[in-house]
């Protein structure tokens, strides 16, 4: 097939799928939080509130689009769509089943990591472009956090690469066939690297307990303070999508991707990533946020040494087996 046409079709399918999952995950999160706090959550729109995301979308579309007079209009307007585009671009290298992948790059993991390292740029644009002290503080915190957690994230992502000897994500998943998931095998470095990778991607996506950039009790809403209507919706969606993409990457790199009991296939990758995604909500509604200095200590004094240790351990494992 013509590569442009194939790309367009893949883009349509993957982006639509990701959007649908992200939209209804807001419903799921509200129901889940409701259940944890002994209240019903959304109930009014549709059966058990299932049409709530559509109602939210219609509401956001009707809101006035306000650009603050002192804002930098270009940065302010570009930030929201750019964030979403970058997050969605990562999905291009995720293989759903053997051969079922939009782009099977031989540097797949690197592509995903380098795209996600760009995610701080739209955050900066939003924080700076709003010309609001809360937005700026939120942006500064987000960048400090992203730069710090980038290093342990890369170190943790090196572990499956070293164990497989390939940057290609489909090779990494194939190397975990028949239950030899890197989170379980080899014992030790794999499990630690999985936990480290997952925590660091939570920090990169600014989720609780790593959400001091948003910290509504002190910063109003961080970088989203000045945003209204659908642009706010896009920023919010980008953050959700970032969490979803992180879950998919963690499931592909450490939990065997499409491998599972019974027939292998895309459903296993989907089930694993959605379970991780739900786990993030669970964490979010159970824990408090860290303080800034605690976060930095966690990244620099615990995360990086742990990352170096698991990289060394997996290199030794490969060398001696």
């Amino acid at each position: 097939m013509n590569p442009w046409l194939a790309g367009a079709l893949w883009g349509l399918v993957v982006v639509t799928g990701a959007m649908i999952v992200a939209a209804w995950s807001t419903w799921f999160e509200r129901k889940f939080a409701g259940a944890m706090q002994n209240r019903p959550g959304p109930t009014e729109v549709g059966p058990v509130g299932l049409l709530q995301p559509i109602a939210d979308l219609l509401k956001l579309l009707q809101k006035a689009d306000i650009i603050p007079r002192t804002a930098d209009p270009v940065l302010f307007n570009v930030a929201a769509p750019l964030g979403l585009i970058l997050v969605l671009a990562t999905l291009a290298v995720v293989p759903w089943a053997p051969g079922l992948v939009p782009a099977d790059l031989d540097i797949g993991v690197l592509f995903a990591l380098s795209i996600s390292s760009l995610m701080v740029v739209p955050v900066f644009m939003a924080g700076w472009g709003s010309n609001n002290k809360y937005a700026l503080l939120g942006g500064m915190r987000a960048i400090a956090q992203a730069v710090s957690f980038e290093v342990p994230l890369l170190l943790a992502a090196l572990v499956p690469i070293i164990l497989t000897g390939s940057f290609r994500i489909s090779d990494i998943i194939a190397a975990q066939a028949d239950g030899h998931w890197f989170a379980l095998w080899p014992p030790g470095p794999g499990a630690l690297a999985f936990v480290l990778f997952f925590l660091c991607s939570l920090a990169e996506a600014n989720r609780i307990p790593f959400d001091i950039p948003e910290a509504e009790s002190e910063l109003v809403a961080g970088i989203t303070t000045e945003y209204t209507g659908m642009k706010f919706g896009l920023l919010y969606l980008a953050e959700y999508m970032h969490t979803l993409v992180s879950s998919i990457m963690a499931a592909a790199l450490f939990l065997g991707g499409w491998d599972g009991p019974g027939p292998d296939g895309p459903h296993w990758l989907l089930i694993k990533s959605l379970l991780l995604f739900a786990g993030i909500f669970w964490v979010r509604w159970s824990f408090l946020r860290f303080r800034g200095d605690q976060l930095m200590n966690l990244a620099w004094k615990k995360g990086i040494p742990l990352g170096l240790a698991v990289v060394m351990a997996s290199a030794l494992w490969v060398h001696f087996t």
């Binding site: 795209i115 390292s117 701080v120 900066f124 942006g139 960048i143 400090a144 992203a146 730069v147």
Partner: peptide, 19 residues
């Protein structure tokens, strides 16, 4: 590597310094 180190790393640090 270019994107990861230069845009993701160095430009980010420059933005932080500017901020």
């Amino acid at each position: 590597i270019q994107v990861l180190l230069y845009t993701g790393g160095i430009v980010t640090l420059m933005l932080f310094a500017v901020m």
